[in-house]
């Protein structure tokens, strides 16, 4: 069973360790930063910083072809960059796991985040990705665990949307 600790990023990290996920790629998002930091401190997990989220799809699939499990971390705005790339795990039945920190849905300050925030679940579902969602901190570990098992056991793509309600909406100050 997935643990529940003080910080839900620890719970995700525990799932990575239990399920032998040894590569984590990302275009950084503040919501993921504590998890990225945990992974970077772990010599058994390779962290790859991408220039665009779509490269994480190909990277993840190539790693799987070589016997290595991975996860792609991104913000909801990155999901749109991945659409055509998602054909690769789909047609090859490669397990693909992504964790998406949501913007544009709960107390968002920046209007530019709203279009992709609204589009994220629809776009993922349009590409046949199984979409999981965590709205509360104590369900993150079990949700990521379920999504990862879904992906790796059934050779499908799975995404976990980490809600902005849980992460917290940043309020910007001018000046």
């Amino acid at each position: 069973m997935a643990e529940v600790t003080k910080d839900w990023r620890n719970d995700i990290y525990a799932v990575f360790k239990e399920l032998n996920i040894t590569m984590v790629s990302h275009v950084p998002d503040a919501g993921h930063t504590p998890l990225i930091n945990l992974c970077e401190k772990d010599n058994e997990i390779e962290v790859v910083t991408l220039t665009t989220e779509q490269d994480g799809v190909g990277l993840s699939c190539g790693a799987y072809a070589g016997g290595k499990r991975s996860a792609l971390l991104m913000q909801s705005s990155g999901v749109g960059n991945c659409i055509n790339a998602l054909a690769l795990p789909n047609i090859c039945r490669i397990p693909f796991l992504t964790l998406v920190s949501m913007r544009g849905e709960w107390g968002e300050f920046v209007p530019w985040q709203v279009p992709m925030g609204l589009g994220t679940p629809k776009v993922l579902e349009a590409m046949d990705i199984k979409v999981f969602r965590a709205d509360y901190k104590d369900e993150v570990g079990s949700t990521v665990d379920a999504a990862a098992r879904f992906a790796f056991n059934t050779n499908r793509s799975a995404a976990v949307l980490l809600s902005q309600k849980m992460i917290g909406a940043k309020q910007f100050k001018n000046g």
Binding site: Q54, D55, G58, G62, A63, Y64, G67, K68, A85, L88
Partner: peptide
């Protein structure tokens, strides 16, 4: 051999993932 027939732009990151894993 593994040949892409779609997913344009993905062969380079795929090759990176494979090279890291193998």
């Amino acid at each position: 051999n593994f040949g892409f027939i779609g997913a344009m732009g993905q062969s380079i990151p795929f090759a990176l993932g494979l090279a890291k894993a193998k």
